[in-house]
């Protein structure tokens, strides 16, 4: 009922949950609250026993959609899809109407096709850093999208369906691109479906593959992986970061299961026991947690090439 049917690969739904609790171990909400009801397992088990969606509202709202639960699930359940399905079911009609109104307005504004083989979808915080943006374009050849897609991102997070005309405008301006680089891994899942022929790359992987960036990483760096992109392509990226660790010796925001710890509200935990001198982030939003911590300089991965 709550599983998303739009995923191209048919994955298991909540009924397959065996209650192993492995998702609890990596869930940032669990780590903060120690409340199993607020975890993917809590939601799956409740659904198995016929709980109505309204009873899960608090649990669904608490999820940060970091996707850490998915690579550890031995049953390969679409846990993020389950949560988004519940969010769609619980969405406030007034919010849906307001967002759809905004989206239709945006859709009515003309937009030129992005003239680039590599398109780049930065998040709002990165868009406010023009120098870093320019550096990314210089290093990767990726051209920032002119449609920021903020409303689409909001709809994706809320599980709200996206009006066809809005989606056509957004995807239309990316249609010349053979590769799309995303800063926030949240885009990975829908773009895989919407642009099946385009190569999708996380910004971290795109920059991390460049010698100029890699060689500037130090043993005393804490490298902060953007969790959503990492978890959505875990089997491939776990090798990428493991090689980076072997080559450069830097520390990562990974737990013992090699799952990325989201920095929001967890900077202290990530830094605990580490001897670092600098924090390197893939996603500009993640810098805030460490800037607030105040103990170390924080740089974007793209800025490493200048160091």
């Amino acid at each position: 009922m709550f599983g998303r049917a739009r995923s191209p690969v048919v994955r298991k739904d909540h009924s397959a949950c065996s209650g192993c609790s492995l998702c609890l171990l990596v869930c940032p909400v669990w780590r903060q609250t120690r409340d199993p009801r607020l975890t993917p397992e809590g939601r799956a088990k409740a659904l198995q026993h016929g709980a109505p969606a309204r009873e899960l509202a608090a649990s669904v709202a608490a999820c940060r959609l970091c996707g850490a639960c998915e690579p550890v699930c031995p049953e390969d359940i679409d846990l993020v899809g389950m949560t988004l399905g519940l969010r769609a079911h619980l969405a406030d009609p007034a919010l849906v109407t307001a967002l759809h109104g905004r989206m239709k307005e945006i859709a009515s504004q003309p937009l030129r096709v992005l003239d680039a083989k590599i398109a780049f979808l930065p998040g709002p915080a990165l868009r406010e850093k023009p120098q870093v943006m320019a550096r990314i374009t210089a290093l990767t050849g990726a051209v920032p999208s002119t449609d920021d897609g903020v409303d689409i991102e909001e709809a994706l997070q809320s599980g709200i369906p996206i009006p066809r005309e809005r989606l056509e405008r957004f995807l239309g301006h990316l249609r010349a691109a053979q590769e799309v680089v995303v800063e926030d891994g949240q885009w990975m899942r829908p773009l895989r479906e919407w642009l099946p022929k385009a190569r999708l790359t996380s910004l971290g992987a795109a920059l991390g593959n460049l010698d100029a960036v890699r060689r500037s990483l130090r043993k005393t760096d804490l490298y902060v992986i953007e969790p959503r992109a990492y978890h959505s392509d875990y089997e491939r990226l776990v090798g990428h970061y493991d090689r980076l660790r072997t080559e450069r010796g830097c520390a990562f925001n990974l737990d013992l299961q090699r799952i990325a710890i989201p920095p929001a509200a967890q900077a202290d935990w990530i830094l605990k026991g580490l001897r670092v001198e600098r924090v390197v982030v893939e996603r500009q939003e993640d810098a805030e947690a460490f800037v607030a911590h105040g103990a170390y300089p924080v740089v974007h991965l793209a800025e490493l090439a200048d160091h």
């Binding site: 209650g19 109505p52 009873e55």
Partner: peptide, 17 residues
């Protein structure tokens, strides 16, 4: 104390199943 089915159902069985 939670008495909702969403809370109780989560504990309906163990790993043995």
């Amino acid at each position: 104390m939670s008495e909702t089915i969403s809370a109780r159902g989560a504990y309906a069985t163990d790993a043995g199943g």
